[in-house]
Amino acid sequence: MTAVASTAVAIPAAPKKSALAWVADVLVWGGVAAVLLYSIDAVDLGNISRLFAGNDSTQLFVHDLLRPDFSDWKMFVAKMWETVQIALWGTFLAVILGIPLGLAAARNIAPVWVVTPVRWIMNLLRSVPDLVIGLLFVTAVGLGPLAGVLAITLNTAGVLAKLFSEAVESIDKGPVEGVRATGAGKLHEIVWGVLPQVAPLWTSFALYRFESNSRSATVLGLIGAGGIGQVLFDSMNAFDFRAVSAIVIVVVVAVTLIDTLSQVMRRRLL
């Protein structure tokens, strides 16, 4: 009886890596270290001391940044609000595009002849930077927030479609099979078996992308796609670093508020 009890509570031996696994780890991490060392000159990392070298321009820049000028605060806030609206509409349209693309790219509910081209489209949308897409739309529709909305829509649609499809591929098959057993069609399987399982994750992904797009919309303003980025760019070109400091503070406050609101919405919805 004692032998049986001691056998039942015996602590299993710790897992051991094989020699082949150790060699693979050394090759992978050693390769990463080698690439980092090799690329020091390529990225000019050896001259990082310039960042801390004292010069008049740097001192003037830091001095003005510490003295923000809020004389045009109403305009800064209005432009920041425009930036938020660009991000909001871009994210909303991206979700509308991302849902069908995500479902079509999921291997467990779509045939391979649909999945493959849809994944190519998703890769294309994700691989082209939103700044490049923004420049194309600025050329097509002119300067203004519309170009920013369209750029964020396409880039974010590719990202969300990938995340949505991965969420669909990880669902429990039980509810889908239960709906199928009732004789329901493919659309009913998706509506009643798939969407209830992925809705919380999809909501979380969309909220996160909205937070990210609020920052991306600021950068898009640098190419004339609307929002506070254009004001920031103009202030930088005019060497008005006090205004730059005020704009940065407005952006930080806005992004912080958006992050807080997003967390509240996530807790309420999830």
Rank of each mutant, 00 (worst) to 15 (best):
P175D: 00
D172E: 03
E189F: 00
P175A: 02
V219R: 14
V244T: 12
I152N: 10
V159Y: 14
A161K: 10
V176P: 03
A161S: 15
I152R: 00
G229K: 05
S204T: 13
F241Y: 15
G178P: 00
A140P: 09
A206F: 08
A254F: 12
T139K: 12
F210Y: 13
S235L: 12
M265N: 07
V255S: 07
L232S: 06
E189P: 00
S235A: 15
A181H: 01
G134N: 09
H188V: 01
S245L: 13
G229A: 03
K162F: 10
A199W: 12
E169P: 10
N213R: 11
F137L: 09
I171H: 00
I171Y: 00
A238V: 03
I152Y: 04
L257D: 05
L143K: 04
G134I: 10
E189D: 01
F137E: 01
V251T: 14
A246M: 02
V255D: 07
V138R: 07
L135S: 07
A147T: 05
A238S: 15
Q197P: 10
I228G: 15
V253L: 15
R266D: 10
A246V: 01
A246H: 04
R180K: 07
L207D: 02
W202L: 06
S262P: 03
V191D: 07
D172W: 04
V264Y: 13
D240S: 12
D234C: 05
F233W: 10
A147I: 05
I152V: 06
A157Q: 03
F205D: 06
D172L: 01
V250P: 01
F137Y: 03
L146K: 03
G148I: 08
A181M: 06
V250D: 03
V159W: 15
S262Q: 03
E166T: 06
L135T: 11
L195H: 02
S212N: 15
L143E: 06
K186H: 08
A151Q: 08
E189H: 01
V141S: 02
A140K: 04
T256S: 13
N155I: 08
Q263F: 13
G224Y: 11
S262K: 08
I258H: 04
L232W: 05
N155Q: 10
L232N: 08
W202F: 13
G142I: 02
L136T: 06
A199I: 08
T260P: 08
V138E: 08
L163Y: 12
L163Q: 13
V132H: 12
R209K: 13
V141A: 02
T182K: 00
F233K: 08
G193D: 02
N213S: 09
A217L: 08
L257G: 07
N155L: 02
L143R: 12
L131P: 06
V250H: 08
V219S: 10
S170P: 02
T182P: 00
L195S: 01
A161T: 11
V231L: 15
P175W: 04
H188G: 14
Q230E: 15
Q197T: 01
L163E: 13
W192N: 04
W192Y: 12
M236I: 14
G158K: 11
T260S: 15
L150V: 11
Q230T: 14
M236F: 11
V250C: 12
A161M: 06
V231Y: 14
G134L: 11
G144S: 05
K173M: 07
L201D: 11
L220G: 10
V231H: 15
V176G: 06
R267Q: 03
S170T: 09
T256Y: 05
T156P: 03
R215L: 09
E211M: 01
K173Y: 06
